[in-house]
Amino acid sequence: MTTIALLLITGLGLGALYFLIAAGLSLIWGLMRVLNFAHGAFFTVAAYAGWSASRMVVGASPDLQWLVAVVVAVVVGGVFATLTEVVLIRPLYARHVGQVLVTVGLALATISLVQGGFGSDPQRLALPAWMTNTTTIVGANIPNTRMLVIAVALLVFALLLFFLQRTRFGLIVRAGVENRAMVQALGIDVHRAFTLVFAIGGMAAGLAGMLAGTYYGTIDPGRGTAMLIFAFIVVIIGGLGSVTGSAVAAVVVGELQQFLNFYGAAGVGDFSVVLLLAVVLLIRPGGFSGAST
């Protein structure tokens, strides 16, 4: 029971990180039909920016340092994503091969730059003492960082749902995911929605970058790319363009990985996620949410 509780909550924590990356990816694909391979670069650059900022707040309490890191990561993720959309993606609308090439190129160049600037080794993130402690649940000592990541992801999920369901921009995004041309034919400048969705996606990826640092205790230049692969799987399983679908899929993928990696041989969890993707594509090509695209 103790092990199961530990695996459940750790799996939820991993799923929370996947969700933060996948939500933006899903909205970007759903609305803009852009397969954004640079999303992992937003994650990585934001994490390093946050980590650097936290080291500049000399003498501040660890809580404040961590908070500064998170805020800087969110802002840098949003700004980087916005610039990417405006400068690189916008001239390539409807040129999908060009978009793939430019986002892959940006991802590779960014990771190389980060490695050049900070080295390839993981950098330790200073965490407040309460984050390094554990809380006992059903006899299992659960690291507080897992609970923190889950709580933040739930908050982001609620904010995204509020944005999508209760604001005009959210309405435009939901409509644009269904039929972008008709949104334009109603007199709406859909490009503004594109930029906003990219910015939101970048902010969520930046937050994920910092929270992944919190979850693992270190930041590392390759983690964004590694997590992006699973985030893409989450997006497809959840249904392209569906934030709720991404949330459900992220939990399923996180739990599957945790349980099978623990009870099965090493790597079985990762393999099973790919298998799940294949099964979903065969049985329900639109993913959990049933989206047709």
């Binding site: 005009r168 309405l171 435009i172 939901r174 409509a175 269904e178 039929n179 008709m182 949104v183 034919a185 109603l186 007199g187 709406i188």
Partner: peptide
């Protein structure tokens, strides 16, 4: 449009509000 192109996932009220 010919195929109406209403936003199937939005309510009637949301379709109108969008316009």
């Amino acid at each position: 449009p010919e195929d109406r192109d209403v936003f199937a996932g939005l309510t009637v009220e949301e379709n109108l509000r969008l316009a």
